[in-house]
Write a protein that binds this DNA or RNA. Structure first.
Lengths: 386, 386
DNA sequence: CTGAAAGCGCTTACAG
DNA sequence: CTGAAAGCGCTTACAG
C-alpha cells in the first residue's frame, strides 16, 4: 500500500469556526478500492521544480548532440544551419521528454526577456479585464509574454507597485492613473525603461495612446442636452474629484455645464467597491424630491453607472422616465441591463493594439529618440437609459 | 536639442479606418517649450533589461565585499553571521543603487522558485476575480509570488494551458474545470508537481478544498420549494450540461425535482459571454405564456443569473412576482441589483486560504505522501428575487 | 565573520 | 554543419 488517506484539519476548522461557518464536512472517501488506484506515485528525491523538468542537456544527450545545437534548432535560429536529419532527431527527443524551455534561464541568458509588463489600476472593473485580455492576446501573438502587475488588491492605495520591479520585463504598458508611479517602481532606471502609456498622458515626452475622453464625454453630454436634460450631476470617484491635475472627462462636464449656464453638481464615491458605492448614490438621489433632483446622472464609468442604475430603481425611480443615466467605457455588463446603458465606447482593442505596437518598436529600437502619441476617439452608444 | 517630436501613424490609421473609426486625432504638442523639458534623456548603449538593473556584483563592488556576502545579508540567511557594520554598508549600497534582485536568476540558482501558479477558468466572472485577488494576497503574505495562468481568453476552448508549463512554479493551485488539464500541461511531470484543487476534485488521490456544492444547491432549492415554487428550471452552461461526469449542482437539482415529482427542465447557454447569454434566456422565458413558464429559474452561478434577471425584466416580468430567480457564488454584483439576488455564498477567502496552506505544506514537505481533502460549506443568502 | 567557486538552464558569438 | 565555452545574476555548501 503506497499511501494512506488522512483528513487533516490543520487550522481550517478553527478558521471556519472563527468565521462563523458551522463546520467542515469531511469527505467520505473510505472506500478501500481507493487504495489500488494507479494515479498516485511514490514521491522520491528532491521536489525542486528544476529536478522535475527535463533540461536542454537532457534533450541533447538523448539526441547525441550538444546543447548549443538543440538551442539553435528549437529556437529556429536562422544563423545556424543544422542538417534536417539532426533537426528531426532533436525535435523527437524534445517531444518524447516533454521538454519545455525554462523561461527564467532563457531570459537570463538572452539579451531580451521577451516579456512585457501590463499595469492596470484594478481588476474589479470589467473594462480593465478586457484590456488585460486583449493585451495578452496581442502580446502572445507577437512572441512575448505578459506579466500582469500584481494589482490584485481591493484598494488601490495598498498596492505595492514596486513588486513589478522584481520581474524582469523589456517594457511596460501602463494604463495611467491619477499619479504616475513610474519612478516609484523603477527608480533611477525609469527614464531608460521603454514605457507606453494608455488612456492618458501627463507628459509630452513619452509615447502613448490617448483616449479622447474630452470629446467622448462631450458627446455624451450633448446627447443628454439634446434630449432636454438641463440639470446634470457628475458621479465621480474621490481620487478624480480631489486631484489637482485636470481630468478630461471632468473638464468636459464643467465646460458643458458652464455653456449651459447650469450648476456644477459633483457626487463623489470612494474608489473601491465601485458598483456598491454607485448603488448607494442612486438610492440617495432617489430619495430627493423631484424638484431638487438632477434630471440626469453622468457617471465617470459604466461600472459605477450600473450600481447607480440599480440604486435609482431600488428607490422607485424610472430610468430614463424620472432621470437619465450615462456611463463611459462600453462594457458588456452595461449593455446587459434590462435597459442598456447609454455610454461612450472605448475601443480597448485598438488602444492596446496600437500601444503594444509602439512599445515593441521602442524595445526593438533602443536608440529610438522620438516619441509617438496618438489619440483614439470613442463612440457614443445610445442605449435605453437616456 | 536632444530630441524631436514626431507623430507617426505606422499602422494605426489603417487600423482605425479598417475598424470604421472616423479618424485618429493627432495631439497638438507643437508648443516649442516642449523641447527644453528635462524629462527626456539620451538613450545610449544597450537597452537590454539586464543592462538597466544594478546586479549583486554592483552592490558587492560598492560595498567592497563578495557577492556571496551580499546575498547572505539581503536574504537574511541565518546560517551566515555577518558583522553589523558590514550589513549596514551593504544595505546602504543596495539602497543607493536601487538594487532589485532578479527573480529569474534567484529562481534558477535556488532550489525553490518561490512562486505558485493559479489556474482559474476565466476572468470574465467576478467570482474568479475575487479568487485571484484573495489568493494573491495570501500567497504574497507567505513570501511567494503568484503566477496567474494566462487564461485571458474569451473562450475557454482556445486557452493554451501548456503555457503555464513554461513558467517555473513550485506548485499549482487549480480551480477545477470540467476536465482535468493537468497532464496536458505538465506531461509526465504532472504526478510529481504539487497540486491542490479548489472547488471540486475528481480523484481521491489528490489534495484539495472542495466546496460543498450539493448541499449549497439543495439549500437554494429547498428555499424555493418552501416559498411555494414547484416548476423549477435549471439554467446551466453547455459544458456542464453535456459532460458525462456528474456535476454536484446539477445532481442536487435532479434530486430535488425528483423528490418533488416534477419535471426536469434544462436551459443551456454557451459558456462565454455568460451574462449576455443569460439575458437572452431571460427574454426567451419571458416570452412564454404564464401557463407553460417555469415559476423559478435556478441558475448555475450569479454571473448568468444577473443576465437572466435583466432579460426577464426586459421582457416585462416581475421578479419575484411572476418568477423567482436564484444564483450561486455570492458575488458583490448580484447584491448590487435593485432586488439583490438570492444565492449561495461560496467563501472564496476560506477556500483559497485553506488551499494555499495545503499547497505550501506539500511544497515544503516533498516526501509527503498523504493527501488532504476538506469540504467547505456555502451559506444561503436570501435576497429579493425569491 | 567572509570569500572563492560551483552550478542553476539557457543563449550566443566564435571556432573548426 | 556542429561543438566548446563564456556568461546571464543569482544561491549555497564549503573553506578558511
Amino acid at each position: 500500500m503506497c499511501c494512506y488517506m488522512n483528513f487533516k484539519y490543520i487550522n481550517y476548522q478553527l478558521l471556519l469556526l472563527a468565521c462563523g461557518w458551522l463546520s467542515a464536512t469531511p469527505i467520505d472517501k473510505t472506500d478501500p478500492s481507493c487504495y489500488d488506484c494507479a494515479t498516485l506515485v511514490h514521491v522520491r528525491g528532491s521536489m525542486s521544480n528544476n529536478a522535475l523538468r527535463p533540461s536542454l542537456a537532457d534533450v541533447a544527450a538523448k539526441a547525441s548532440v550538444s546543447v548549443g545545437t538543440v538551442s539553435h534548432v528549437l529556437n529556429g535560429n536562422p544563423k545556424a544551419r543544422i542538417a534536417q536529419a539532426t533537426q528531426e532527431r532533436i525535435r523527437r527527443a524534445a517531444d518524447e521528454l516533454g521538454y519545455r524551455p525554462n523561461r527564467f534561464a532563457r531570459s537570463l541568458a538572452g539579451k531580451h526577456v521577451r516579456s512585457i509588463g501590463l499595469m492596470i489600476p484594478t481588476l474589479n472593473n470589467p473594462f480593465f479585464i478586457s484590456v488585460a485580455v486583449v493585451a495578452q492576446r496581442r502580446i502572445l501573438d507577437l512572441g512575448y509574454e505578459m506579466v500582469l502587475d500584481p494589482i490584485f488588491a481591493q484598494e488601490w492605495a495598498v498596492i505595492d507597485h514596486r513588486r513589478l520591479g522584481y520581474w524582469p520585463v523589456d517594457g511596460i504598458l501602463m494604463w495611467t492613473f491619477t499619479s504616475q508611479p513610474t519612478n516609484e517602481i523603477f527608480g533611477a532606471q525609469a527614464s531608460r525603461m521603454p514605457i507606453v502609456y494608455l488612456g492618458l498622458m501627463n507628459d509630452a515626452y513619452c509615447s502613448g495612446v490617448q483616449v479622447d475622453f474630452y470629446t467622448g464625454m462631450t458627446r455624451v453630454l450633448n446627447h443628454l442636452i439634446q434630449r432636454g436634460r438641463r440639470n446634470l450631476a457628475f458621479v465621480v470617484p474621490e481620487t478624480v474629484a480631489n486631484k489637482p491635475s485636470s481630468d478630461r472627462r471632468r473638464e468636459a462636464y464643467f465646460d458643458a455645464v458652464k455653456s449651459l449656464g447650469g450648476e456644477i453638481q459633483i457626487l463623489r464615491y470612494a474608489d473601491d467597491h465601485e458598483m456598491a458605492n454607485g448603488r448607494r448614490i442612486g438610492l440617495e438621489v432617489g430619495a430627493l424630491s423631484a424638484r431638487v433632483r438632477p434630471d440626469a446622472l453622468v457617471c465617470y464609468n459604466d461600472n459605477v453607472a450600473i450600481g447607480v442604475y440599480h440604486g435609482l430603481r431600488a428607490a422607485g425611480l424610472s430610468v430614463p422616465g424620472d432621470i437619465s443615466l450615462t456611463g463611459f467605457d462600453g462594457i458588456e455588463e452595461g449593455q446587459c441591463l434590462d435597459n442598456p446603458l447609454t455610454t461612450a465606447m472605448v475601443p480597448a482593442d485598438l488602444v492596446c493594439g496600437a500601444g503594444i505596437e509602439m512599445l515593441i518598436e521602442r524595445i526593438e529600437n533602443p536608440m529610438l529618440e522620438q516619441h509617438t502619441q496618438i489619440a483614439i476617439p470613442t463612440r457614443l452608444i445610445v442605449g435605453a437609459t437616456t
